[in-house]
């Protein structure tokens, strides 16, 4: 009996350890494959040139159109998401601080909102576009992605704000500040690490999402100059060009994948580093 339980312990310890380490192995596997493929085809031309002769058939040129388009959309969408998400998160944690029930209900709804798949946002963006009589354009892509990432901004920022001790809030009110001043001058500063994480997470999600820009931003070989022009994006550059029968075009897809992966890696690691750095000086 005693031996059996020790054998069982060892078997499961081994299995669960194996599962954990295999996750690290899977990540390494994915990143190595993307980088090996990508760095073989990554060259200066890839980064500074737009595709020549059509993105699907022409082999010349690079993916500059997609890089610029992706950055435009991600920055624009993150900006809108901050404008909507940041005050919403502050409101939950300042004005509603006495109403735990409402707070929890809102968090519950936001979490559920987070689960809606991006293709649904894409379809919704498309109906909006038809409603306003627009074509696939940069602005439609920005708005759709902004809707997609706003719940992320609110929930991530809120997670950190909710850990701020209530005494701080009471102290500022006792000194005579209005609730808005408490929100923007005190709570915002205290929760700054959460804000940074929220923004970076949202940016990463926005730059990598393909299903929602598929309908709304379209695809083009040119660099978009105005908000009403269609824009290419990195995920779609990978998706479309990977299916091409011409090897040079597929090379472009691999290069785009490497660029996108590097961006995501940088964002993930910076978010972790910055959130640690800014939360050090916080009141505990």
């Amino acid at each position: 009996m005693n031996r059996r339980k020790i054998i069982e312990e060892n078997i499961f310890k081994f299995l669960s350890g194996f599962a954990t380490y295999s996750l690290i192995a899977i990540l390494a596997f994915i990143i190595i494959i993307i980088f090996v493929k990508g760095f073989n085809s990554l060259s200066l031309d890839m980064v500074i040139k737009t595709p020549k002769g059509g993105y699907y058939y022409g082999g010349e040129g690079g993916v500059l159109n997609a890089i610029i388009g992706s950055l435009d959309i991600a920055f624009g969408a993150t900006f809108i998401a901050i404008l909507i998400g940041m005050p919403a998160a502050l409101y939950i944690n300042v004005h509603l601080i006495r109403y735990k029930r409402i707070q929890n209900t809102i968090r519950y709804l936001l979490d559920a909102l987070w689960g809606i798949p991006s293709i649904v946002y894409g379809a919704f963006g498309f109906t909006l576009m038809l409603f306003f009589g627009m074509n696939a354009s940069l602005i439609a892509g920005i708005i759709t992605i902004a809707l997609l990432i706003t719940p992320i901004v609110v929930r991530t920022f809120d997670e950190v704000l909710s850990t701020i001790p209530i005494g701080l809030y009471e102290a500022t009110l006792a000194l005579g500040s209005t609730k808005t001043e408490t929100a923007f001058k005190i709570m915002f500063k205290q929760g700054f690490s959460g804000f940074i994480t929220a923004v970076l997470l949202a940016f990463g999600r926005g730059i990598g999402d393909a299903a929602s820009v598929l309908f709304t931003a379209g695809y083009t070989d040119l660099i978009p100059l105005y908000l009403n022009e269609p824009a290419a994006t990195l995920p779609l550059a990978i998706f479309f060009q990977l299916g091409s029968p011409i090897p040079e075009v597929r090379e472009r897809a691999f290069a785009a994948a490497a660029i996108l992966t590097i961006i995501i890696l940088i964002i993930s690691l910076t978010a972790r580093y910055l959130s640690k750095r800014y939360s050090k000086s916080n009141l505990k």
Binding site: I26, L27, I30, I33, I34, G204, R205, A211, L236
Partner: peptide, 21 residues
């Protein structure tokens, strides 16, 4: 400590990258 960034990155990689893989 090692697993936290691993999970972050796995969760953050765009679906197109998984598709290409």
């Amino acid at each position: 400590r090692i697993m936290q960034p691993v999970m972050d990155i796995l969760a953050g990689l765009p679906s197109v990258i998984y598709g290409m893989w």
